[in-house]
Amino acid sequence: MVYDTLGSAANDWAGKTYAEIAETADSDGSVLIVPVGSIEQHGHHLPVATDTILVDAVAHLGASRVEDDIPILVTPPVWSGYSPHHLPFGGTITTTYDTLLDLLEEICESALQNGFDAVVLVNGHGGNASLVASAVSTIGIDHPDTEVTGITYFELAGSFIDEIRESDVGGMVHAGEFETSLMLHLRPDLVRDDRIEGTMLESEYEHGLHDMFAGGPFSVYRGFDEYSETGAIGAPELATAEKGERIYERLGDEVEAVLREVYDHALA
Rank of each mutant, 00 (worst) to 15 (best):
Glu109Cys: 09
Thr138Arg: 14
Phe116Trp: 05
Thr152Met: 05
Ile141Ser: 12
Ser137Gly: 07
Ser137Pro: 05
Val132Ala: 08
Gly150Ile: 03
Asn123Asp: 13
Ala118Lys: 09
Gly115Lys: 12
Gly126Thr: 14
Ile139Leu: 03
Val119Met: 05
Val136Ile: 11
Asp145His: 03
Asp117His: 11
Ala118Gly: 12
Asp142Pro: 08
Ala111Trp: 07
Ile151Trp: 10
Ser110Asn: 15
Ser130Lys: 13
Glu147Phe: 00
Leu112Ala: 09
Thr152Cys: 09
Ala133Ile: 14
Gly127Pro: 15
Leu121Arg: 04
Gly150Ala: 06
Thr152Phe: 03
Ala111Gly: 09
Ser137Ile: 09
Thr149Ser: 08
Asp117Pro: 04
Gly126Arg: 06
Val119Ala: 02
Asp117Arg: 12
Phe116Pro: 00
Ser110Glu: 14
Asp142Lys: 15
Gly150Cys: 06
Thr138Ala: 08
Gly140Tyr: 11
Ile141Asn: 12
Gly127Leu: 07
Ser110Met: 12
Val119Lys: 01
Glu147Asp: 08
Asn128Tyr: 01
Asp142Trp: 07
Ala135Asn: 03
Asn123Arg: 13
Ile139Phe: 03
Glu147Tyr: 00
Ile151Gln: 08
Phe116Ile: 02
Asn128His: 02
Gly140Asn: 06
Val122His: 00
Thr149Ile: 08
Gly140Asp: 09
His143Gln: 12
Asp142Asn: 11
Ser110Thr: 15
Ser137Phe: 08
Gly127Cys: 11
Val148Tyr: 01
Gly124Ala: 07
Pro144Trp: 13
Ile151His: 10
Ala135Met: 03
Ile141Met: 13
Val119Thr: 03
Ile139Lys: 01
Gly127Asn: 10
Ser134Lys: 08
His125Gly: 05
Thr152Ile: 12
Asn128Arg: 04
His143Thr: 07
Gly140Ile: 06
Thr149Asp: 11
Val136Asp: 01
Asn128Gly: 02
Leu131Thr: 05
Val148Cys: 00
Gly140Ser: 11
Cys108Phe: 04
Gln113Ala: 08
Ala118Met: 06
Gly126Ile: 13
Asp145Asn: 02
Thr138Phe: 09
Gly124Leu: 10
Gly126Asp: 10
Gly115Trp: 11
Ile107Gly: 05
Thr146Trp: 00
Val122Pro: 00
Ala129Glu: 09
Val136Thr: 11
Asn114Tyr: 15
Gly115Arg: 12
Ile141Ala: 10
Val119Cys: 02
Gly140His: 09
Thr146Pro: 00
Ala135Asp: 03
Val122Thr: 04
Val132Pro: 07
Thr138Leu: 08
Val120Tyr: 04
Gly124Tyr: 07
Gly124Gln: 05
Asp145Cys: 01
Ala135Cys: 07
Val148Pro: 00
Ile151Leu: 11
Gln113Leu: 11
Val119Tyr: 02
Ala111His: 15
Ser137Met: 06
His143Gly: 06
Val136Trp: 01
Val120Arg: 01
Ala129Gly: 09
Thr146Ile: 12
Ile107Val: 14
Gly150Glu: 02
Leu131Ala: 04
Gly126Glu: 13
Thr138Gly: 06
Thr146Ala: 02
